[in-house]
């Protein structure tokens, strides 16, 4: 039984850093890393709540999130390499073939 408030605050901060990174940065690699920070913020929340409740479900959920994050990163980096081979840059503002 631990008090989760501080950990939830930490999770909110991590999540916020991630969101700001996704929105503000232009480098696709940094954006993918920011998404990982968001997911880690979620993990902290799940584990904090789970251990507060004495329930392992929270930790199990965090494991699932980590697994999915790894799969997502693998796919994201593969696509990043494909982009770099075509354009020699991973700046997302250079991705402008498709627009209205």
């Amino acid at each position: 039984m631990m008090e989760p408030a501080a950990y939830l605050l930490l999770s909110g901060i991590l999540f916020g850093i991630g969101v700001v990174g996704v929105v503000a940065r232009k480098n696709a690699l940094i954006i993918l890393m920011s998404v990982e920070i968001m997911l880690n913020g979620v993990n902290v929340a799940f584990i904090a709540v789970g251990s507060h409740l004495g329930d392992v479900t929270g930790s199990v959920f965090a494991f699932m999130v980590m697994t999915v994050a790894a799969a997502e990163a693998a796919v994201g980096l593969a696509i990043l390499i494909a982009i770099y081979r075509l354009k020699e840059t991973i700046d997302i503002t250079e991705l402008n073939v498709l627009k209205w």
């Binding site: 991630g18 969101v19 979620v42 709540v49 994201g76 696509i79 990043l80 982009i83 073939v97």
Partner: peptide, 27 residues
Amino acid sequence: TEASMKYVVYGATASGVMIYGFSLLFG
């Protein structure tokens, strides 16, 4: 390739936000 890069960024962000909502519900 551009389509799939945009898809990854939007998709990963949207699901990240969704799962933060899930963590609130779990909490």
